[in-house]
Amino acid sequence: MSRQRLLLVACRVFERELEVLARTAKTELQLHYIEIALHQQPGAQLRAALQEEINTVPEEDYDAVALGYGLCNRGLVGLKAHGLPVVIPRAHDCLGILLGSSQRYLAELEKQPGTYFQSCGWIEHLPADRTLRPLAAGEGLSLNQEELVARYGEESAQFLMAEYAKFTQHYKRLAFIATPVAKADERERKAAEIAQQQGWTFERLPGDLTWLQRLVDGEWNDKDFLVLKPHEKVALSYGDGLISAEPA
């Protein structure tokens, strides 16, 4: 029996984990990566990028398209399958996926709502001059102090810096989701450093790659994955399933 030919379009946050899992995947896997943190960019850029990928897949070459994404703050709502089925984990975001289940993710958030999560991928892709990735949409938030002063003037820049500090004031814990990938120890150390700089507690959460494994292996049970039939689109659902398929 020939293996399923799967195109996996994934956020770059998963690159190292997928490197590991792809070697023993049960499907014939092709990986396309999309730049990290698109969910923070305005203008529905994430949806547009994913839709573009889906629309341009050479459909004779694959049996299905899988997305290495979760709901990602509504970024996937409205995404439409083309001629191939599209498989999406029923996850809120990459953090839930790396923790292995939404249940575990929500339990960690319940334990400490003020948790700033990081993973190997997030630490790897931190801009060099930043300790924290900006948390809300907008180009303005990625400016550093000099740039802020240049754009808004000294006084306003001070005000904005103070406001930005408030965005993270409610965080009490940095939870680092550790996965067995290259340089994991180095990433963990950096995360612990960030926690210390911010005055947060640091906790290492062992990652669980079984969800991601099932994505690459083609084991898509209905509880954990939404499979869009051709031309169906993603709708937000308020039940446990998070997302559902709607006819186009």
């Binding site: 923790l99 292995g100 289940s101 575990r104 550790a178 996965t179 067995p180 994991a184 062992p206 990652g207 669980d208 790659l209 079984t210 494994q213």
Partner: peptide
């Protein structure tokens, strides 16, 4: 420890 890390990541929580 990397071995146990890998074991648990593949075993699931």
């Amino acid at each position: 420890l990397a071995s146990l890390d890998a074991f648990y990541a593949a075993a699931g929580t």
